[in-house]
Amino acid sequence: MRNVFTIAGKELRGFFASPMGWIIMGLFALLFGYFFLAHLDYFVGQSMQAQQGGGPINVNQFMIRPLLQNVALINLFLLPMITMRAYAEEKRSGTIELLLTSPVTDVQIILGKFLGVLGFYAALLAVTMLYIGILFVFGNPEWKPVLTGYFGLLLMGGCFLSVGLFISSTTKNQVVAGAATFVVFLLLWIISWLGQSAGPAVASLLDYLSIVWHFDDFGKGVIDTKHVIYYLSFITFGLFLTLKSVDTERWRG
């Protein structure tokens, strides 16, 4: 376990030591801010109407939940940038030789890298919490759905990151890794669109396969083990593929 944290710590520091990490963080905050303002604007409009026509509307339901759902969209663009270097750059620069000849197992390396990228993603989410904090200052949202929502975002991001890690482990070129990851994310995304327009049987299958669909309940403040298990199995599968890929590379040389 100590080795896992050593590697995770190294990954995490790498983001803050390079301009890339700060650029990703800036973009994440910027995009989130844009969605925040757009939703705020919409929400204020809605609540004006609601005041004229009846009781107040819920800030959780009309603002925070759709806002958090939009993080999935931000992830689509920015998470490939987090994982693309993870293996590709180590392979290109030869530092992979250090890792693979150190007394650590492949599983420890992979878990370390995964925790590292997940930690950075958590830091990105932490920044967005500052925006949500504003709502708590000026309004009175329920905090529980916010927490479950963030928990769901972390799990959803974990799925993207495990896929990204796998793709990064198959190439030496981080640009190729990033582009391929984006395309795969896009496909995973499209699955959820198709779900909306397909017939009921196919739709439920596509929904099940869609990473984004499973997030819905978290946004509502519900932690359903079904979704947690789905996300955790997805992550495990992604990391398993990474392990296989690292092992194959090893044999090929």
Partner: peptide, 16 residues
């Protein structure tokens, strides 16, 4: 691996 020190052909350094 615990008992081996290895200097590869290209030194495996992290630039950052």
């Amino acid at each position: 691996k615990r008992r081996v020190g290895y200097l590869p052909e290209t030194p495996p350094l992290y630039p950052d």
